[in-house]
Amino acid sequence: MGQVLLSIPVAFLVENALSSGESKEFIIDCLRQGNYAPLLEKSKDPDMDFADRLKTAEEMGDDWEEAIRNDYVFKFLHINGLKRLLRFRFGKEVDHDYIQENLTLRQLSIEPDKIETLRLLVSRQWNVIEENDITGEKTGQRTTVRLELKYQ
């Protein structure tokens, strides 16, 4: 099977559910059964309407189950969606963990093993460029990256 493509609302359903810290199969079971409380009480956005987003997934044909099991790629991702992804998946906040300059995010310090995950998720529209820090070296267990819109 190729990469699962998700719309923004469905991708953030997946991200919010995953942010609960529960196992993937537990998350899938809860979403299938409409039992959202165990996920929402632990998720980063407890006010998200999971039922509405599941309806959107059905209408758009987005395979949220496969995305939870094996990851996905955004069909389209604007700058604010990218910032939201960084908060959900990587716990990174603008003006605290990175800076925004127009359509570029700079000085994002991230663990090297998470860079490929970030690339997978955003690669259709965003370049993830590894940079050296100010001292010219990678900082310990983190790498500084820049995210740039591919087509400006």
Rank of each mutant, 00 (worst) to 15 (best):
E22M: 15
I99N: 04
I115E: 14
D47N: 15
E137Q: 12
I134V: 09
R87V: 06
P46C: 05
L103W: 09
S43F: 09
E137Y: 12
D133C: 04
I68P: 04
I134A: 10
F88K: 11
E58R: 05
R146D: 10
T117I: 03
T139W: 04
P112I: 01
R124D: 01
H96N: 07
I27A: 12
Q152C: 14
E101F: 09
D133N: 08
V10W: 00
Y151H: 14
Q100L: 04
E93Q: 08
K92R: 11
F12S: 02
D52G: 13
V10A: 00
F50A: 11
F74C: 10
L13I: 04
L77G: 04
R89A: 10
K44I: 01
L31K: 11
G91S: 15
R89M: 01
E111C: 05
R84S: 13
D97S: 00
G21E: 11
R32S: 07
K150M: 04
D133A: 02
M60N: 00
L108Y: 06
L103K: 10
P38L: 13
Q3M: 14
E58N: 08
N16P: 00
L105G: 09
A17T: 06
F90S: 06
R32C: 05
V73L: 10
L149A: 14
P38A: 12
L103R: 08
A57G: 06
N132E: 10
L120C: 03
L86N: 06
A51V: 02
E137C: 03
N35G: 00
L13V: 01
L120G: 11
E93G: 10
S109D: 04
Y151R: 15
P38F: 02
G81W: 02
A11N: 10
D133P: 00
Q33D: 14
T56V: 07
L86S: 05
T117H: 15
Y72A: 01
